[in-house]
Amino acid sequence: MRVTLAALSASALVPASAFAVDYMNAEQAAKLMFPDADRFESRDLTLDAAQMQALAAQGVPARSQTWKAQVAHRGATTLGVVVVDEVVGKFELITYAVGIGSDGAVKQVEILSYRESHGHEIRLPAWRKQFVGKTPASTLQVGEDIANISGATLSCKHVTDGVKRIVHVVDVAKRAGALG
């Protein structure tokens, strides 16, 4: 074991910086979750007012009326669906993908990106917009790019709540025939 401290004595004086990691994009996640698929079809899952209310009554407010999904097909068979969502924590913005099989069960959850701000701008649309369309780093560079956070309170509660919401949204869309 070797630990080399980075100016620890002054750490409280070093300004905090933002932190971001891109793990993969939505297409890569979809292929990873459904490796047998021969095509993916983009589809908007749109909930009507009655469906939104039904979800809220189940204790899972849908939050958004339209969800972007990729439906995985193999020939004439529908294998499942991948939905991408983002959640905002105290200082972090997490984009993640949920793969749901044709049986309605969660197949896999992958984090697509993690962003941590050094202030409350995490809640500002302009701050978040700067990352839209950014392609994930596909090569690994040994250096500051791979910095790892050690911290006491990082929770994935927002993500697990989000996964639950997506399962319900996909279930409603499926029963309404929106997934074919």
Partner: peptide
């Protein structure tokens, strides 16, 4: 040599802490 940063639990953001080789760190 893995760069390790510490999360600022009060104000957000991260600060450089250490480089770690063949070992573990927990906070």
């Amino acid at each position: 040599d893995l760069p390790v940063t510490l999360r600022d639990e009060y104000g957000g953001g991260v600060r450089s802490f250490a480089r770690l080789r063949d070992g573990a760190i927990a906070t």
